[in-house]
Design a binder for these strands. Sequence first.
RNA 1: GUCCCCUUCGUCUAGCGGUUAGGACACCGGGUUUUCAUCUCGGCAACAGGGGUUCGAUCCCCCUAGGGGACGCCA
Length: 453
Amino acid sequence: MEITRFAPSPTGHLHIGGGRTALFSYLFAKANKGKFLLRFEDTDQDRSKGEYVDSILNSLHWMQIKLDSEPVYQSKKIVKHKELAIELYKKGFAYACDCSEETLTKMREQQVAKKLKPKYNGLNRNKNIEFAEGMVLRFKFPLEGESKFKDLILGDIAINNKEFDDFIILRSDGSPTYNFSAAVDDMDMKITTVIRGDDHITNTLKQINVLEALGATIPRYAHLPMVLAESGKRLSKRDGAEDILDYKKKGYLSDALINYLVRLGWSYGEEEIFSLEKLQKIFDLSDVNSSPSKYSQDLLNWYNNKYLNFLSAEELVIKVKENSGVDFREIDNGNLAISLLAKGANSLNQIAEDSIYFFEEPQIKFDALNVDANKKILFSEFCKQLKKIDFEKNSIEKYIKEFLQANNLKFPELGKPLRVILTGRENAPSISELLFILGKETSLKRIEYTLDD
RNA sequence: GUCCCCUUCGUCUAGCGGUUAGGACACCGGGUUUUCAUCUCGGCAACAGGGGUUCGAUCCCCCUAGGGGACGCCA
């Protein structure tokens, strides 16, 4: 059975890139009827925070990503990992090193000056220093040959072992380092496929060597190409990509975000719309693109608009209320109003923002209309006749049409000012729809307010 | 600097040796009872460059260029 995992470090909120990684990992597990696990890599005592653990959990929950067992906290396994590191040392896969920070810094500076890749030069590798508290343990990385693996997305990847150094697996304070702990935990959790960003490729090679020293089976690996900001640079808030929960706050639907995110790198023929349910059946790593992609706010908005319109009026009412407090149940024809607004909206928030004129009188005076004063009589006439008609959609449309003809007017001459009178703004849904939803009484009230001196 | 990954319309992508290189977003234009709305129809627009391999390269190989990433007692 496939077992995947998402392994964030709780040093910040779940970012859109991390969300995508989690999603891909989750979908791969589900499509293979496997399990998806979560592991917090919280061994950095200074930077890891409980609030971020909660925030990440909330983000995953909102994204409808369910865990198949309780999250694993790496910090709780520090002692065990330390023991294992010492075991590797005893078996000769690691050695003790007492180089000071100054020594290491100087070493690096010299290497950089010589335009070499900065790395530990193996000074203590063959000194057989006996390990004592306060020393670090370094992994004896193979000196010759190359390390390689077959990536599920990128294909064969091989790097000469000379490119690696004897990285530290146990710090001088006795705590294990990332590359060691991650490898051990993947082994312990029986992870079959590791899915993560391609910035981990070199880590993968290190971890594979650790796993081999440990005598563990090597999982398969899939490295996802990065998501870049719209600018093409590394993703950052500045470029519009934010934390997952910010999208929730701004009124994005998780289904829309999921659909958008999954299409960042993954595709399925020419289909664009996928339900989570379907993704859980058809997702496959072989359909993941090997090149990096850029975040696109436009595309996300398009998806959100789509999903907004997949919802029923009742569902929209509930979601808008939850999200911004605006309650369409308070107004007449609330369901019609919210559906109308959803047609052109990119978010729940936008629906709420655009809805003001359904809740409050725009109170537009004729002078503010920027229309010839002599047109006023025309509006009076329009208003007078409007009173008499049956307030049904068809009859409203018919009446407007006839009124325009009778007075030899073009639609904008009546429509533009009328839209402002009715809504207080120039961009709003169609006039007849508005009149109908607002109702005869309210519509007339607004027009009369405008005409009244 | 060294090493690794990547390169099809502006963007997300389809393509897996022979296609008028397809779709979607964005954009532009037309239509709709003439909104910077909706809906609808249509249009613009790409194989980074150079070498090979091959009867034939978007597709396979190499080089160059460009972009991204990794080089911590962070994860």
